[in-house]
């Protein structure tokens, strides 16, 4: 019991990840000449805003026990649509992008929930198709966004540390935390991620929730893409694989499990902030980029070890074998042991 509450990964993992990176950030003056400027904090939130919504989208589907690989496809498409439809009015651009994101999420959710297909191959296919669609919309070229006042507005400094873009991103994390914390959706989302059959029996409307999660994921990713395009003043048809890998790393560092049933939006926020802080530390300290890569690798290996069931069981077995008066409690899982007691 004590062990399980200490190592509860949905709070421990983001705390450790965020803690490590905050310490690294606070130590910045030790290895650079200048102190920490408020600009560094602003910049961290800008990096956070760049990928935050994609990480939130991916993380929400992971909590529900799915894995939406298409987020980066929707992100690219949303950015492209926002630029192409929003040349005159940013609102039209955002609406078109978000509408497309919602439609993509709806179709994927219906296919996955309706046919009970594993989401990874479906969303992988959608990811490839969406990248192709985005590229064919722009003939494979970047599209410039000529509405400079919008570009200036989304990145202007607000309250020293923020920009409208990072505040919108933070706000959406807050909305997600509030909705999942207050309503029963939060519990139900974790329930369908943990044991879908049991939650169906318990009266959770599983299919509806899965479809809703994918719609939310599509909307968030498309909005993230639109904000990025406005900020850069252009839309890039091929964001590459890096955003997906970083968003997945952020979600995992946020305490979400790929097995599903675990995680909160606040944890995701912590994980994403850790990724952003690390990127900022590396930039300011002018560390070679491969240090970041190795750092991510190390963090993810720790997560893998925490999450690997057979390894954990093996460790628990080894520990119980070491103690001479072996208790009668089953050595498999702490939580089932607690249920029996």
């Amino acid at each position: 019991m004590r062990l399980s509450s200490l190592t509860r990964p949905e709070s421990l993992v983001p705390l450790v990840a965020l803690g490590t990176t905050v310490v690294a950030f606070a130590l910045l003056p030790a290895y650079t000449d200048s102190g920490i400027a408020s600009f560094d904090v602003y910049n961290t939130f800008q990096i956070f805003a760049r990928l935050g919504l994609v990480a939130l989208a991916l993380g929400l589907t992971m909590i529900a026990g799915e894995f939406d690989l298409s987020v980066v496809g929707t992100y690219a498409l949303g950015g492209m649509l926002a630029v192409q439809a929003g040349q005159d009015s940013w609102a039209t651009g955002v609406l078109v992008a978000v509408g497309a994101g919602a439609a993509i999420g709806l179709v994927q959710g219906l296919v996955i929930a309706g046919l009970k297909i594993p989401s990874m191959p479906v969303t992988l296919a959608t990811y490839i198709a969406l990248l192709g669609l985005t590229s064919s919309l722009s003939d494979g070229l970047s599209k410039t966004y000529s509405n400079a006042s919008v570009t200036l507005w989304v990145d202007q400094t607000v309250l020293t540390f923020f920009s409208p873009r990072s505040l919108i991103t933070l706000g959406l994390f807050g909305v997600a935390a509030l909705v999942l914390g207050v309503s029963r959706w939060g519990r139900e989302l974790r329930a369908i991620g943990g044991d879908r059959r049991a939650s169906r029996v318990a009266g959770v409307r599983v299919d509806r929730l899965v479809v809703g999660t994918f719609v939310a994921s599509g909307v968030l990713s498309a909005l993230g893409g639109a904000l990025l395009s406005f900020s850069l003043g252009s839309a890039n048809p091929d964001p590459g694989v890096q955003p997906l890998i970083l968003a997945a790393a952020a979600a995992l560092l946020g305490g979400v499990s790929l097995a599903g049933g675990r995680g909160t939006p606040i944890g995701l926020l912590g994980g994403m902030l850790a990724v952003a802080l690390l990127a900022e530390v590396v930039t300011v300290a002018a560390l070679p980029a491969y240090v970041t890569q190795l750092f991510y690798a190390a963090l993810l290996v720790v997560i893998v070890v925490i999450d690997a069931p057979d390894l954990r069981n093996g460790l628990v077995r080894a520990r119980t074998r070491l103690r001479p008066p072996a208790p009668t409690a089953p050595s498999t899982r702490n939580d089932t042991g607690a249920l029996h007691a």
């Binding site: 894995f67 990874m120 890998i245 997945a248 790393a249 995992l252 790929l258 097995a259 890569q293 190795l294 991510y296 690798a297 993810l300 290996v301 997560i303 893998v304 070890v305 999450d307 690997a308 069931p309 057979d310 390894l311 093996g314």
Partner: peptide, 14 residues
């Protein structure tokens, strides 16, 4: 160890 192959290979790719 029954580690999750997706997470593990993301770590490996880094």
């Amino acid at each position: 160890a029954a580690a999750n192959p997706v997470v593990l290979t993301i770590a490996a790719s880094f």
